Computed example of a mutant assay.
Amino acid sequence: MNGDVLVLGGGVIGLTTAVVLAESGRRVRVWSREPGDATTSAVAGALWWPYRIEPEALAGTWALDSLRVYEELAARAEETGVRIVPGVHADLRLAGLGAWAAKVEGLRAAGPGELPAGYAAGLRASIPLIDMPVHLRWLEKRLVEAGGTVERRLVTSFGQAQAESGARVLVNCTGLGARELVPDPSLRPVRGQLVLVENPGVTEWFTAADAASAETTYFFPQPGRLVLGGTADEDVWSLEPDAAAAAAIVARCARVHPAIGDARVLGHRVGLRPARSGGVRLTSERLPGGALLIHNYGHGGAGVTVAWGCARAAASRAG
């Protein structure tokens, strides 16, 4: 037996789950078809916030569990990629949030002078903003230090993965890949497009997301760049940046912060959020050969937000 747990998927959900399992004393291997910097997770913005994720009650708990971890990791920002950054969520009110909101320190209604023109309400908060390429590399390093390994492997079935690994516990963190692997037709892509520009002096993040619209407006100051967004195009599989969408993203962000309109474009990114009807699947079952299969996928646009909470829940199922 090469390891008693095999985690399938090398994005933030897979790596975080693998770290939790390895640090609990398990021997863990991660198989991923692509390196971490080529996963959907690497494209993420990535601001901690329970956005587009269900079931709401569980998601709130998972998000708060993760928040506490990120708050600790922010003490080593250069190493972990996690910083606590202030900003504004426009068009949101405390009354419209779940019970989790009462446990986010400093989250409050924004005053009139704290909102951009055109917005009548909003919230202010200082919450984790994560540089995902740095964070994914840190997670992989932490896993290796705990005795785990990461391999680039293509998996076509759970039976194949179990037979080739010899593992008695498999954890399915394949994100959108679970649509074919499980198979689970309730999974669908929600395409997100970003524009990276030189930062013209923006120090706070901003979001204005209409759940009923495919167009969102946000900008996140990351080291060496300002990340502009975005889109939420359901059932769109294309990973090619759309020039018109990119121009519209810049224009929307420039209406909030005019200097963004003149910022030099550094690049474009597209990712497919793994949305699932009914929300996150965190369940377990037995494979025909007796191995335990744990599912941890379907996190939509909030994988980073709930990664540690879901990882701990998945690890508890491993016994």
Rank of each mutant, 00 (worst) to 15 (best):
E164A: 07
A245M: 10
A146E: 01
S213D: 15
Q193G: 05
V150I: 15
T231R: 11
H135T: 03
M132C: 02
W237C: 01
A161P: 04
R188S: 12
A243K: 03
I260L: 10
L239K: 13
V202F: 11
L176C: 04
E198Y: 01
Y218W: 07
L139Y: 03
P185Q: 11
G261M: 08
R179A: 10
A208H: 06
A245F: 00
G159K: 08
T216K: 11
A146N: 00
V265M: 07
K141N: 08
T216Q: 11
G159L: 13
G267K: 06
D184G: 01
R137Y: 01
A244D: 10
A208R: 09
A246F: 08
W205G: 05
W237P: 00
P183E: 04
G177Y: 11
A245R: 15
T207C: 04
A245S: 14
A211P: 06
G267T: 04
A254I: 10
E140K: 12
E151A: 11
V190Y: 04
T207L: 14
R142F: 00
T156C: 00
F206Q: 07
F219M: 08
V144G: 01
D131K: 07
F206M: 06
G159R: 11
F220V: 15
A163R: 15
S157L: 10
L266G: 02
T231H: 06
V182F: 12
F206K: 08
G229T: 06
V195R: 06
Q162N: 00
N199S: 05
A214G: 02
A243T: 11
L194H: 14
G148Y: 11
Q162C: 13
V236I: 14
T217F: 11
E204V: 05
P183K: 03
V155K: 13
A245D: 09
P223F: 06
P200M: 04
S157G: 04
A178H: 00
F158M: 07
T207E: 05
D131S: 10
L266C: 00
L187N: 02
R179T: 02
A209R: 14
H135V: 05
C173I: 08
Q160A: 14
R168M: 06
D233K: 13
A178C: 09
Q162Y: 09
D262L: 10
R264I: 03
T203Y: 00
E215R: 14
T156A: 08
V182C: 05
A243I: 05
C173W: 10
T174W: 02
V256I: 11
A251T: 08
A246Y: 09
R153L: 11
V134N: 00
G148D: 03
V197N: 03
A161W: 10
C253Q: 04
D242L: 06
Q193M: 09
A232Y: 10
S186L: 13
A212Y: 03
S238V: 03
R252K: 12
